[in-house]
């Protein structure tokens, strides 16, 4: 294991601005150490992929970004997770997790629409923020559904239950729900693990469009997916970031043998 993080040199003239940075983050579930001194930059309006074998801590790291761990007892963390431009440490005790989740949305592995209408699913984030105006809600729901490339398929049946959609459509509905509140960043936890190849390709297409507007952090088990959609990739193993770099660099010329073994399928 290496002490200093081997960061591939950026090939582009200038790296984009930072949206968030993780410094010295360790995380424990009870006595089990899931993250061990993680350092990670997340660049603004880019897609950053977290890859690594099962149990390497990538989902744990992702869920730190919107304080999902606060919902469950028996875990604790040290270190900092700074969100820019306002330099706030998202893990700070005085930072309200609700405030964090208002800025950073999340899409889960298994599509989890609420047992409500398509419209109400998308409107929920706005409703919890106190939005009551039907005009505003209508407009934002349409906008979000358009951004999630779902509008044309559902515009005539917004009152149907969300569960009536197919798996891929449900996942796009969940993306629309996340987009409706105009978050600064969206976390994707293996968003296509439960989907067929066609739906997967739709979601991947969508992600590359989304990065025009939001920062995307994605956990994936699918190496090709990471290579296709991400600008930066971090390879994790045993709770540490082993290698981080531009996706093209990392996949074509990995600096470490271990990374190469993983991405070529010889390990993990």
């Amino acid at each position: 294991m290496v002490d200093r993080l081997p960061v591939a040199k950026p090939a582009r003239p200038a790296a984009p601005a930072l949206k968030a940075s993780v410094t010295g983050l360790s995380f424990h579930y009870g006595a089990h150490k899931a993250l061990d001194g993680v350092e990670l930059p997340v660049y603004d309006r880019c897609v950053t992929a977290l890859i690594g074998p099962s149990g390497c801590g990538k989902t744990t790291l992702l869920r730190c970004f919107n304080r999902m761990h606060d919902l469950y007892p028996g875990n604790h963390c040290q270190g900092e997770l700074t969100l820019y431009p306002d330099n706030v440490n998202l893990l700070g005790r005085q930072v309200d997790p609700i405030a964090v989740r208002m800025r950073i949305a999340m899409v889960f592995q298994k599509p989890n629409p609420f047992p409500r209408s398509i419209y109400e699913n998308v409107a929920y984030g706005l409703r919890v923020r106190g939005e009551r105006s039907r005009v505003v809600l209508d407009e934002k729901v349409e906008q979000a559904l358009r951004s999630a490339a779902l509008w044309d398929e559902v515009k005539d049946r917004l009152d149907d239950p969300g569960a009536s959609l197919s798996g891929g459509q449900q996942q796009r509905l969940c993306i629309a729900r996340a987009l409706a509140t105009e978050p600064e960043m969206i976390l994707f936890d293996e968003p296509t693990a439960a989907l067929d190849p066609m739906a997967t390709s739709n979601i991947e297409q969508l992600m590359t469009e989304l990065k025009q507007r939001v920062t995307v952090l994605i956990v994936t088990h699918n190496m090709q997916q990471a290579a296709r959609v991400s600008d930066y990739t971090a390879y994790m193993y045993m709770g540490r970031i082993i290698e981080f770099g531009e996706t093209d660099e990392l996949f074509i010329r990995p600096r470490l043998k271990q990374t190469e073994d993983y991405i070529t399928g010889r390990f993990g």
């Binding site: 999902m68 609700i98 989740r101 629409p113 609420f114 929920y124 919890v128 729900r177």
Partner: peptide
């Protein structure tokens, strides 16, 4: 299921909102 609670919290809901809704 916890996935429903997590979905609500991820939308920015407070505990009471997640429970009530």
């Amino acid at each position: 299921p916890d996935s429903q609670r997590e979905a609500a919290y991820a939308c920015g809901a407070s505990t009471w909102q997640a429970i009530r809704d």
